[in-house]
C-alpha cells in the first residue's frame, strides 16, 4: 500500500510545516511593493497608460508641479508599469506590500511630487529630465542642462544648422 508506506515515512521525517522565519527565498523577478523615484520620473504617463486597474494617476498644478499617485488597493501587481517605464523610475521591490496603512498613514497610497523647474534659458516651467536620460537623448552639454523641451529642440536644431551651414554664411543670411 503506497499510502501506508508514505505516511509511515512521514512519521520518521521532520514535519513539512514551515515557520514564518524560514520563508523560501524571494525570486529576483518577484513583483512586490511599488516604489517610485521622483528624480527619474519624466511624467511621460506611460505607467498610467499601461495600468489596467488604473492604480496610477497623474495630477498637475500648472506651473508648479506634476504629481504621481498610486493606490495599492487598485494595483494588480502585473509589473507592466515598471517594465514599460522608459527611465526606470518605477521599480517593484522584493518585499511584500503592506496590507494596511502604517501609523504614518502611508503605504496604501503613494504620492510623489515632481517639481517643475524654470528653464535656464527662457524661464518656462518644465519637468526636469534625469541626467541619464539627458545624456542618452541629447548628449552632455553643461549649459543646456536646465533647458525646457522647447529650448532644447531649438538648441539642437541650431547646432544641427551650425554643423551644415558655416557661421559667416549664416550671419550673412540674417
Amino acid at each position: 500500500m503506497a499510502m501506508l508506506k508514505t505516511i509511515l515515512g512521514n512519521l520518521l521525517r521532520p514535519p513539512r510545516t514551515r515557520d514564518p522565519a524560514d520563508m523560501p527565498e524571494v525570486p529576483p523577478v518577484y513583483r512586490g511593493a511599488l516604489a517610485h523615484d521622483a528624480a527619474r520620473c519624466t511624467a511621460c504617463g506611460t505607467c498610467a497608460f499601461v495600468c489596467a486597474p488604473k492604480a496610477i494617476t497623474f495630477t498637475q498644478e500648472p506651473g508648479v508641479s506634476v504629481s504621481w499617485h498610486f493606490f495599492i488597493g487598485q494595483c494588480s501587481f502585473c509589473g507592466l508599469c515598471a517594465q514599460n517605464c522608459p527611465t526606470r523610475a518605477i521599480s517593484l521591490q522584493a518585499d511584500a506590500p503592506g496590507a494596511t496603512n502604517s501609523a504614518a498613514g502611508d503605504g496604501l497610497r503613494l504620492e510623489s511630487v515632481i517639481r517643475l523647474q524654470p528653464c535656464t534659458r527662457c524661464g518656462a516651467a518644465h519637468v526636469p529630465l534625469p541626467d541619464a536620460t539627458i545624456e542618452a537623448l541629447w548628449g552632455v552639454e553643461e549649459a543646456e542642462r536646465g533647458y525646457c523641451p522647447e529650448c532644447r529642440r531649438r538648441a539642437a536644431s541650431e547646432k544641427l544648422r551650425a554643423a551644415f551651414v558655416p557661421a559667416e554664411e549664416a550671419h550673412h543670411d540674417r
Partner: peptide, 12 residues
C-alpha cells in the same frame, strides 16, 4: 482597455 492593459485583465 487598451491592448496593453487588456492582457492584465484577461489574465484574471
Amino acid at each position: 482597455r487598451n491592448w496593453v492593459e487588456v492582457i492584465t485583465l484577461i489574465e484574471r
